[in-house]
Design a protein around this nucleic acid. Sequence first.
DNA 1: ATTGACTCTATAGTTAGCTTTAGAGTTTAT
DNA 2: ATAAACTCTAAAGCTAACTATAGAGTCAAT
Lengths: 141, 141
Amino acid sequence: MKTKNRYKIGELAKLTGMTVEAIRFYESKNLIQASDRLPSGYRIFNAHELDKLWFVRRAKAVGFSLDEISELLELRLHPNDHSCQEVKQVTADKMAQIQEKIDELQSIHSSLNTLHQACCGGPESAEHCTILQILNSEAKL
Amino acid sequence: MKTKNRYKIGELAKLTGMTVEAIRFYESKNLIQASDRLPSGYRIFNAHELDKLWFVRRAKAVGFSLDEISELLELRLHPNDHSCQEVKQVTADKMAQIQEKIDELQSIHSSLNTLHQACCGGPESAEHCTILQILNSEAKL
DNA sequence: ATTGACTCTATAGTTAGCTTTAGAGTTTAT
DNA sequence: ATAAACTCTAAAGCTAACTATAGAGTCAAT
């Protein structure tokens, strides 16, 4: 089964839940590129660009700016050592940054969970009553 | 050892790495509150407000809006079932949302790691060369 | 063949989250 | 006691990331 490979901008919008205008905006920022144009000027996008749009959505949801997303999308192995060193460096930096975000999210998640459990008569309900108090008391462990 | 409990706005700024103006802005949005004012009008913040500022910083870094952060900060157990149900609901929703973010971050992290390893002669360097290709190939596993 | 849905470019407007500016008073270190 | 550093309010300005508007052309279904 072959997957479709020519999408008009409105189709992309429906598939990704973005607006047509947002997609044109991302194109103007070079996050994606129309793979073709009809004689009328209509943009045509291929499946690869659709994948990129999904990536943009996901990366945005976790707090990356469009500039950072652009950097991630442009990361690619090249067959020479110069760019290889660059990729090693950038990936290492980004991974560290992402790991920090994961850690933050996990501690917020765990605080929310404590709050959730303490609801309606959990054993901690007397001592802990806000996210901050939980974050602080957990930090002391 | 008692921890300090009266901070002027400039001290908070130094401690948290925020600007004085940003802190006043957060106060204007009710994310934090001055616990006191000097006769001169100078704001005085206590240690609890300092903790809140740190929370704001961390939550912002993982993509929460100030409105969402405000919601999280206001979450607290109350001694009646009505608000308890609300807290249960809100915490459950936020936890699910956070878990999604963690999953996104982990898949991006793992793609970056593959890219990182493939650099300079890793075994995958021939097949995979961008984040997207890695994300896609991993999705197929 | 025509009409309704879609797309184009260009430009202006919007919202969130700050930053800057201006002018005036306050604190603190010498 | 005075100057440097800090703080105040109010209002305007800025950047990122869109959204909306206008006017014109295009496509698809009847």
